[in-house]
C-alpha cells in the first residue's frame, strides 16, 4: 500500500487537480506548493493529452495550453522529482491510457516509482481492461485508482472489491466541469462501496463550492476538485499560485467543519 492512506488521516480529504504545465511548469510547481501549504491532502497531477475525452471545456483548454507550451511526459516526471524533494503528501497522476502505453507501461511506472508518484488514475481504463496495466503498477508499488460512476449500478461491488489507494466516485454523468447541482445519490453508491472495501473513497466531478465539497465529503472520505482550480489558473496565469492557495484553504476549511 502506498502513502495514499495518509491523505485520509486529517479528517475529510481535500484533493485538488492541476494540469501540469498550464501555463508553464514553474507555475504548476508554485501552485502545488501553495495547495500543500493551504491544506491539500493529496494532489492529482494531470499529464496533458491531446484528446482528453473525459474532460469538459475548462480542462480540455488547459491540456491544449500545456501542450502548446511544449510540456512532455518526461518534463512532468522532472517536475514531480523536484516537487517530491519538498513535499510529503501523496501525489497521483491523472492522464489517459495512451500517454502511459506509448511511453511503455513498464517504463512509465518505473519512472513513477523513481520520482515518488503514489497512484495513477486513467479515466479511459475501466475494470475490464485494468489487468494489462496492473501487472506493472503492482510491481512499481503505485496504486491503480478505480472510478465508479452514477451508471455503474451492479458493477460497483465488483470494482470496489478490487480497488486500490482510494476509490474515485464520479458524482455526475458527463465530463469534468463545475455544476450548479449534483443530483446523483452519492450516499447510495458509497453504501455499496463500504460493503465491499475498506479503502477510502472520494467524490469528484462537478464540485466547485465549499458547500458542495462539504456535502460530497459528508457522504464519503473526501472531495476532488479540478475545473474550478484550472479556471483560476486560466484567469490569473503565472499569478495564480496565491489565488489557488486561497481557494484550497477555503475548501479544506469547509471540510474541517464536518
Amino acid at each position: 500500500m502506498s502513502r495514499i492512506k495518509d491523505a485520509f488521516k486529517n479528517g475529510k480529504a481535500f484533493i485538488p487537480f492541476i494540469t501540469c504545465g498550464d501555463p508553464d511548469l514553474n507555475t504548476t510547481k508554485a501552485c502545488v506548493k501553495e495547495m500543500v501549504k493551504a491544506g491539500a491532502d493529496l494532489i492529482e497531477l494531470g499529464i496533458p493529452f491531446s484528446d482528453p475525452t473525459a474532460e469538459g471545456p475548462v480542462i480540455q483548454a488547459a491540456n491544449m495550453r500545456a501542450l502548446s507550451a511544449g510540456v512532455t511526459t518526461d518534463k512532468v516526471f522532472e517536475l514531480v522529482k523536484e516537487l517530491r524533494a519538498e513535499i510529503d503528501i501523496p501525489m497521483v497522476f491523472m492522464t489517459y491510457a495512451n500517454v502511459v502505453f506509448s511511453y511503455g507501461t513498464e517504463r512509465f511506472l518505473a519512472r513513477c516509482r523513481e520520482v515518488g508518484i503514489d497512484g495513477l488514475i486513467l479515466p479511459d481504463l475501466p475494470y475490464e481492461e485494468k489487468d494489462e496495466f496492473m501487472a506493472y503498477t503492482k510491481e512499481a508499488g503505485v496504486d491503480l485508482i478505480s472510478l465508479v460512476a452514477p451508471t455503474s449500478e451492479g458493477r460497483i461491488a465488483m470494482i470496489a472489491s478490487e480497488a486500490e489507494g482510494f476509490l474515485y466516485i464520479v458524482s455526475s454523468l458527463g465530463v469534468t466541469g463545475t455544476r450548479s447541482e449534483i443530483t446523483t445519490d452519492v450516499g447510495a453508491i458509497v453504501d455499496i462501496v463500504r460493503k465491499n472495501t475498506d479503502i477510502p473513497c472520494a467524490v469528484g466531478f462537478g464540485i466547485s463550492t465549499p458547500e458542495q465539497a462539504k456535502k460530497m465529503a459528508g457522504f464519503s472520505d473526501g472531495a476532488i476538485v479540478g475545473s474550478a482550480i484550472v479556471r483560476i489558473i486560466e484567469e490569473y496565469g503565472v499569478d495564480s499560485p496565491a489565488k489557488v492557495g486561497e481557494y484550497v484553504k477555503q475548501m479544506k476549511d469547509a471540510l474541517r467543519t464536518i
Binding site: T53, D124, E129, A149, T151, S152, R155
Partner: peptide, 24 residues
C-alpha cells in the same frame, strides 16, 4: 490481458470511461 472481448489479435478492447461501460 484480461479483456478478451472484442479483440482482433491484440487490437480492440473497451478503453472507455466507467460511465459508459454499462451502456456498451
Amino acid at each position: 490481458m484480461s479483456n478478451k472481448k472484442g479483440r482482433f489479435g491484440i487490437h480492440g478492447g473497451q478503453y472507455i470511461p466507467e460511465t459508459l461501460m454499462n451502456a456498451v
